[in-house]
Simulated assay, not measured.
Amino acid sequence: MSELCWFIHAEKANYPITLLCCVLRVARSSYYAWREGEAARRARQAADDALAHEITVLHLASRRTYGVPRIHAELRRHGRRVNRKRVARLMQMCCVTRMRTAKRFPASHPASHPDFGWPEPKSGAGIDVTNMPYVPERPGDICQTRAPGAGDQIDGRIRDNWAATQNNIRPVAHPGFSG
């Protein structure tokens, strides 16, 4: 709608507004309402610019650590009543984001929590699957990591069923395999 009104506004010197509105199927009252709203849009933009400047000043005063909730609280403390979503929109528009601070105690390191009495990790408990090599059995395999010798019987059944589906043959039913 706004694009059509801009076009009518640009072409009103060449053609009558009534004709342009009729051809573009825009109500004349809509065009006139859009034209009168221009001053309100400019005032809103000026208010947004002033608020964005104030947000940036508060953000820099906090050493770039305040996010939307704290900036909103600071604005309210200084007597500015604005919506939190408006503060978030302006902060995003001005690329003002809080700096991530380091945590005091990393939660995954037991040495940093001596009071909790975490048990020491067990050595040699189970198979370490994180360092196993990936060997694809056929083209198209994406992620098949398995321990050597583990599950060969089931893998053979899967391989037989896969081969049967490639040849449009009914999959083979293996005794003792319900799946």
Rank of each mutant, 00 (worst) to 15 (best):
G156W: 12
G151M: 02
D115F: 06
M1V: 02
P110V: 04
D49W: 15
S2P: 06
A163V: 09
S123N: 10
A125E: 09
C143G: 10
I55H: 03
G176A: 04
W162F: 12
E11Y: 05
E3W: 03
R28D: 01
L19M: 04
A47M: 11
D128E: 09
H9P: 08
D115L: 12
V96F: 06
I55S: 03
H59M: 01
F7I: 12
R35L: 13
V26S: 00
S108Y: 15
S62N: 05
R104T: 13
Y134A: 10
S123R: 09
V87R: 00
A52T: 09
P136K: 06
T145G: 04
I127S: 12
S62Y: 03
I17T: 01
A73H: 09
P69H: 03
K103Q: 07
H9I: 03
W6D: 15
K85P: 02
I8H: 00
G126N: 12
G176T: 01
L75Q: 08
F177Y: 15
A107H: 11
E36P: 01
Q92T: 07
C94G: 05
Y66I: 03
K103V: 13
S123F: 09
A10M: 10
I55G: 02
A52S: 15
R25F: 06
A33D: 09
A107N: 05
C5N: 01
A13R: 12
T145K: 10
R84E: 15
D160Y: 11
Q153A: 10
Y134G: 01
I142D: 05
F177S: 06
I55Q: 09
L20D: 00
S29N: 01
E3M: 05
A39Q: 10
G37W: 04
P175Y: 14
F105E: 11
V87T: 03
R104V: 10
Q45E: 15
L24F: 01
R138M: 13
N14G: 06
V87K: 00
N131G: 07
L60Q: 14
V135T: 13
D49P: 09
R157N: 12
G179T: 13
D49R: 08
H72T: 14
V23H: 00
S30V: 05
E11H: 08
P175A: 14
R86Q: 13
K85R: 11
I17A: 01
R89I: 03
A147I: 02
P175H: 11
V129R: 14
R159K: 12
C22Q: 14
G67C: 02
E54N: 11
R138V: 15
P114T: 02
A147G: 02
Y134M: 13
P114L: 04
I55E: 01
R35T: 04
A61H: 06
K122Y: 11
R89L: 08
R89M: 04
R170C: 07
M91I: 01
A163Y: 10
A150N: 06
I8E: 02
S123Y: 08
T101S: 05
S178F: 08
H174E: 11
G117D: 00
L75E: 02
H53Q: 15
E74Q: 07
H113P: 03
A150Y: 13
E137L: 14
W118P: 04
R42C: 09
V23M: 10
K103F: 10
R100A: 08
A88C: 02
I158M: 09
H78G: 06
H113F: 13
K103S: 08
P171N: 08
G37D: 15
L58D: 04
